[in-house]
């Protein structure tokens, strides 16, 4: 899966309505809450086969930081 495709998975699953890019600050998104974090954690495992830690996701401030967690697995 490509980086852009994984981003689209997050947007679709978390149901983010705003237009976002990699510089978007997660806390600025209305939909970014604990449920969104949990959903994203599951997506890393499901779509990329990656065991990402809860703390790693919690630390992310921007969309870029979040996507960087999957950098080893993108096509």
């Amino acid at each position: 899966m490509k980086r852009a495709e994984f981003l689209q998975e997050i947007i679709d699953t978390v149901e983010i309505e705003d237009v976002i890019n990699e510089n978007t600050v997660l806390d600025d998104l209305e939909e970014w809450d604990s449920l969104a974090s949990i959903t994203t954690l599951a997506l890393f495992k499901q779509k990329l086969g990656l065991n990402v830690g809860a703390q790693e996701v919690k630390k992310c401030q921007t969309v870029k930081e979040l996507l960087d967690l999957g950098v080893a697995k993108y096509e």
């Binding site: 604990s34 449920l35 974090s37 949990i38 954690l41 599951a42 495992k45 065991n51 990402v52 830690g53 809860a54 996701v57 919690k58």
Partner: peptide, 12 residues
């Protein structure tokens, strides 16, 4: 309940 930790545990 720390939902994030529980999810991480469950998936692994």
């Amino acid at each position: 309940m720390d939902g994030m930790r529980v999810m991480e545990f469950t998936l692994n």
